[in-house]
């Protein structure tokens, strides 16, 4: 095993300790898997989970009816709020995460312009259908965060 590893070319992956001396079957793996084959589509299930968690945290007898569990980081949210305030030429204090675009006086075309400005700002590309159900500032920030991570 040791000789095999020393003669192997450059980018060698580390093998977990319990696999290392077990025999010849796993020796040709250049990449090793830690844990139960965690790979492949890592992002989509995670995001789905947060969405699902957001819905399930709605408690009927709570003081605040919805607990928003945001996926966007505070920096992203702040930038998004600043951009929206600039685009619609409104005061930045009126743009809060829960604010609806319609409350800010933006129609659908304004929303398109905002999303395009955000795309340019963050250097990302959101698909054509992705911006369909955007209602609030938080939605926009979450969408940006999602495509940024992808």
């Amino acid at each position: 095993m040791a000789t095999f590893l020393s003669t192997s070319p450059a980018a060698l992956a580390t093998l977990p300790a319990n696999l290392q001396f077990r025999g010849t079957t796993c020796q040709h793996n250049f990449l090793s898997f830690r844990g139960p084959l965690a790979g492949g589509s890592k992002l989509t299930p995670k995001l789905k989970f947060t969405r699902a968690a957001k819905r399930s945290f709605t408690l009927p007898n709570c003081v605040k009816t919805t607990i928003t569990c945001s996926t966007a980081t505070p920096e992203t949210l702040q930038t998004v709020q600043t951009m929206i305030a600039k685009q619609l030429s409104v005061d930045e204090s009126t743009v809060t995460p829960g604010t609806k675009f319609s409350d800010l006086g933006a129609d659908s075309l304004d929303t398109v312009e905002i999303m395009m400005a955000l795309e340019e700002k963050f250097g990302v590309s959101i698909g054509e259908g992705a911006a369909e159900g955007l209602a609030t500032v938080q939605d926009a920030a979450d969408l940006i965060e999602k495509v940024k991570a992808a």
Binding site: S8, A11, T14
Partner: peptide, 11 residues
């Protein structure tokens, strides 16, 4: 993918 580590020690 997560769980994979590449060691660049060039052999």
């Amino acid at each position: 993918p997560s769980g994979i580590e590449i060691v660049y020690n060039y052999g």
